[in-house]
Amino acid sequence: MKPVLEVSHIHFRYKKKVILKDISFCIYPGEFVAVIGPNGCGKTTLIKTILNSIQPETGMIRIKGHELSHLSNRALARYVAVVMQTINPAAMTVRQYVQLGRLPFFEKYQFFETRKDEEIAEKYMRLTGVVPLADARINEISGGELQLASIARALTQEPTLLVLDEPTSHLDITHQARILELINTLKRDLSLTVLMVLHDLNLAAEYSDRLVLLNKQNGRVFSTGRPETVLTENAIQTVYHTRVKIQPNPVSKKPWIFLVNQQANENDPRIKRNEDEPL
């Protein structure tokens, strides 16, 4: 099976500081891959290189076999749609916003959406449950509703790869679950390939098929694979410098991470601390 996204040996520096070093991984059709790592490890930078907003010093990215540097913005937008972490709240309606997703498919000098464009936008508004908000302005709806509208807009691009940059970071637990359940359903029903940056390790473990854990110290991929192989106590201690306990989620059996309050539990024999580790 050919990968949808192929990232090979990406290297990126910002003002002499190495952000990404020799990053390589692939995403195959229908996979849900989450990129995780501590603040400042280059997750968003990696997403920006995949969206061609910034260019890596060396390395190559291929989308469905096409080298990224050879694709125009328009051609790339037909393959890849993105849901940003923050959305600029313009005064347009949700319907107008979602219909903008058809822009990459407009002919030259086309000024109006075709009937087909409108039908596609309506379909994804229904799927994401934003039809009741269709005539509301996007600067007047809640953060969670805006995120759903943004997903509808991205789906209206009918992309091969859906990229989401921390889509749940400002949301309450209801909207977090709603959005991730929706992405999972879409992945299953539409065979969508998903690449998502997530801060919350438990959410990443629960919903993704594979994880890519980035290491801030050297800019490299620390490990990649299924959540139960990537999310180990040692890996988190090394990458995040934080002690945790990991146990299987009683319902899904996926790894579930518990933070250890070091001061409150310092006499607990179940918690070991390396002698050379700073407090």
Binding site: L51, S53, S72, N73, R74, A75, L76, A77, R78, V80, A81, V82, M84, I87, N88, A90, Y97, L100, G101, L103, P104, Q157
Partner: peptide, 10 residues
């Protein structure tokens, strides 16, 4: 929608 989102729309 901002420059980044506009670019992502081609």
């Amino acid at each position: 929608l901002g420059e980044e989102e506009a670019a992502s729309l081609g």
